[in-house]
Amino acid sequence: MLIASLGSAIAAALAVPAGIYLLWNGVSKNRGTFVEVADLTQLNVGKPQEVTFERTRVDGWRVLKEKVIAWVVRTDDKNVVAYSPQCTHLGCAYHWEEDRNHFVCPCHESLFTIDGKVVGGPASRPLDRYAVRVENSKLLIGSKILKA
């Protein structure tokens, strides 16, 4: 009885901190920082455009300056959506095909409409979006990804 109770106390005192140490923390603690990406006047309504921008990201003990890509669609005068460039099926990079008027993923032929909805292929959810903000007719893209 004594052996079992002291033994379990020790085991718990080792397991609980270990669990917290491994599972509690996200790998990165990024605040939802916004980066100015484009002038609204550069974007045509209804025409997806691939934009590349630079932002800093905290990755564990490193702070990285890295290039990020977004597919940006200006929907009207004041509104813009920015899609994360990875297919929601298995993460391949998709692209906009002008002729087919769809986003097409080369891996398994997932098809998305201009507003991100799935219309073909194995993808099960619409394209992921970045948080966006428009200020003084500039487009700002945030680091948070919003899943549909």
């Binding site: 901190p17 270990a18 917290i20 140490y21 509690w24 923390n25 603690k29 564990g60 003990w61 490193r62």
Partner: peptide, 20 residues
């Protein structure tokens, strides 16, 4: 270099890191 940074990460960012 990385060793130091990662240990500082353990000590400042990781919950229970200083304890371990």
């Amino acid at each position: 270099g990385e060793a130091y940074d990662s240990l500082r990460y353990i000590m400042t960012q990781v919950t229970a890191g200083p304890l371990i």
